[in-house]
Amino acid sequence: MAGASLVCLLIGLLFLAFQVKAIFSAQLEQEYISLVLEAVDRAESARSAAIAWQPPSGDAGSYPDGYRRARVELAARLATLDALVNASPSRAPPLPRAVLSPAAGFDAASTALDTASAYWRAERERVSAAMRARISRVADTLIVLSAIVFGVLVTALGMYAKRNRQLAGMSHEFEYAALHDAMTGLPNRRKLFAALGETAARSHGVPSPGKIAVLYMDLDGFKRVNDTFGHRIGDEFLIAVSKRFRESVRTGDVVARIGGDEFAVLVRTFASDAELSTIAQRLIACVSQTDEQMGLGVVRASIGIASFPDRVADYWRLVAAADETMYQVKRNGKNGFAFAVRPASE
């Protein structure tokens, strides 16, 4: 079947080549006809000028200079037309030699011009019809060849599409794995910084850019969970609290696991510190509720909050500033939150 399809394809391509060659030849012929018809139009314009200058009946003995010049122009135009007709690549009826002189009779010259005009306009229609017919045959052949090619390649295309989907799925899985924490499914540190860069880029150049904030969180007492209850319980706690974190933040914000028992939340836009305080309180409540649900009684949360541009001049330092502030909370008694203070030097 593949061999027969290939033979049909080659025959069809050969037929197309001949048809395309014929179309180009017809196009050249049509362009030549257009040149001849342009000469016809110029000759008809000269004839119209001669008619305009032709003396009225009864004054045939005296021809004005304008009429004589128009007849000379008409003769020159007819000579140019005759030269084009004689140079035609296909046989065409020539103009009578007698009408090429200014002294020729006006009626004879006019009749010869009308005959040439009718012939070449008919030729233009004939060549145009032939071109349309050939183009139609080319279109039909292309449809048939397309069907043959489709029939031959459909299996290969199907296999390629299947393989491409598999590769795309693998690529998506690799990309997801590179940007997310394997255990909790939360974005990782790399994804957090990418989201931070995207958020800052959208705000760049905006007349009134929004404020950005990062809440950095450490789970107080989590080490005791692993030491006392085992790492399995510790992993279950991290998975459960991560789910609560996702449900507590807004749709546009990003909650990420930085590593171990440390998490961060990127707040893409906010209006006031009170809004950030509410988010921090919700996160602390998520930790407390998870601890209570699992009956551990040891895990709480310390959160540092840094915001750009009011507290941190460079948005790339948001995570570091929030991390430093979080350790201040831990030193001051844990289980709470605090805002970063902008250094006096800034």
Rank of each mutant, 00 (worst) to 15 (best):
L6F: 10
G66Y: 08
L283E: 00
L74I: 02
I279P: 01
M326I: 01
A108E: 11
T269K: 13
A139V: 09
V249N: 01
M170W: 14
V267K: 01
K191Y: 13
A139D: 09
S88Q: 05
G58M: 03
R126M: 12
N335K: 02
A112T: 00
M1P: 02
V225Q: 06
D235R: 05
L153C: 06
A2R: 10
A177H: 14
I135W: 09
I33M: 05
G221Y: 01
Q289S: 03
R68D: 04
Q289K: 04
L215P: 02
L196Y: 03
G158S: 03
T141Y: 07
S345D: 15
L10P: 05
A200Q: 05
S272A: 15
A213W: 04
S171R: 12
L28I: 05
A116M: 04
I284Y: 02
R342A: 11
G336F: 01
M1E: 06
V20H: 14
K162W: 10
A182V: 14
K223A: 04
A98N: 10
L14G: 08
A271L: 10
A201W: 08
D82L: 04
P64T: 10
L266H: 06
E292H: 06
N226T: 08
A338N: 04
A274D: 15
A4L: 09
L74P: 01
Q27R: 12
S88F: 04
S288Y: 02
A87W: 10
A200G: 02
A340T: 06
E262W: 07
R47V: 05
R163I: 05
F193E: 15
Y327K: 08
H204D: 13
R244D: 00
F150Q: 05
R42L: 10
K191N: 13
A133Q: 14
V85R: 05
Y160V: 06
S136V: 08
C286V: 00
A313S: 14
T228C: 12
R224K: 14
V254D: 00
Y67Q: 03
L142V: 09
A79H: 07
W316R: 15
E123G: 09
A50C: 09
E173P: 07
L219G: 02
M131P: 11
R331P: 03
G185V: 02
A320G: 12
P94H: 10
S45I: 06
S203F: 07
A344S: 11
E73N: 06
M131G: 13
S146D: 06
V36R: 00
D41P: 05
S57A: 13
R126P: 08
V99A: 08
I135H: 11
F245H: 00
A109F: 07
V40S: 02
Y176D: 13
G333P: 00
A83F: 13
A147Q: 09
G221V: 04
T228N: 13
S101Q: 05
V85C: 04
D41N: 12
S45V: 09
A344I: 11
S242R: 00
G12W: 00
A46T: 13
F18W: 13
Y176T: 13
P102V: 02
L179T: 08
R71E: 02
Y315P: 01
L167W: 11
E198W: 03
E38L: 09
S62D: 14
L84D: 04
A60E: 14
A118Y: 15
A122G: 12
A129D: 14
R331I: 06
G169Q: 13
I258K: 10
S34A: 13
G12Y: 05
V206Y: 03
S57Q: 10
V20Y: 08
F106C: 07
V265F: 01
G197L: 09
